[in-house]
Amino acid sequence: MELSLLSFVQIIIACLLIIGLMVGNAVIMVYIERKAAGFIQRRPGPYEVGPRGTIQAICDAMKLLGKQLFIPGNVDWALYFLAPVLAFLPVLVLFLPIPFGKYLTTLQVDDGILLILAFAGLGVISNILAGWASNNKYGLLGAARAVAQSVAYEIPMIMALLAVVFLTGSLNLTAIVERQGTWPWEWNIAYQPLACFIYFVSLVGETNRAPFDLPEAESELTAGFHTEYSGMGFALFFLSEYANMLLVSFVCATFFLGGYRGPILDGFWWTFIKAYAVMCVIVWLRWTFPRVRFDQLLNINWKWLLPLSILNLWVTAIIIKFID
């Protein structure tokens, strides 16, 4: 890392591009998600606005922008306004070490994955602050669930990523991609299928997506921690949820699916294809599985994912030791 004006300008430009990517991603993913939901539930999905409903997401964004900011009575106003901002702020930092292409990384960080895991924790704090500050029982229950869930699912997630770090011997994301080959059977998913599975399940848990969307379970808690948010407050939560989904998909593509390397023509397009494939699987999962109960959610984590990830780590370490 060079501390020069050039790298500074480079980071600014990259951050602007990342913001563009996040907003564009939210618009595209909303459309894909609603169309997929329609297809799975045998209904048309959005079809009124624009050809095949393509402009629907933009209209929704316009509606959110124009909505009045409604502040319920007796809220802790400082925390109430801080929470959505805090949900969105760390997302920019999270994208810094992602290698989109071989040289297309905002900032080469040697402990890249640690940076991502560290700042991802701030998202939980924003959720619990939102639930707490809105002075609403649904919000508070959602916050309590968010805490228990994210603390639980963080552990198998880190353990699964650690198994890949064992294989590579580096925490740098570019080094992890460079170690994997070009063909699918040379990717880490072939060496670490269990870790990939564990990571994928805990990724759904970490991003609060159905079937693990207990913090906002709309059939029981109205909207959970963001019940009291309307207009831009809700939009920021929504945007950060999709940005987090994009981030974990990129990390999944980097760690398990060979990142920017593909059978032909290595480049950033492979990263994007893989990340969006992961996103589509997440969407598919959401509309296929029913929501689990909260005790089931915690049991899946503590009784299955955690022991499995420890076992996986153990076996990986022993095999590496014997091969060396």
Binding site: L117, G121, A144, V147, A148
Partner: peptide, 24 residues
Amino acid sequence: PFLAFMQILIYVGAVCVLIFFAIM
């Protein structure tokens, strides 16, 4: 940087969240 990231990961991401749980 390793210690800095660990500080955020453990203290902000886990300890503070658990303190919040205790408050609730």
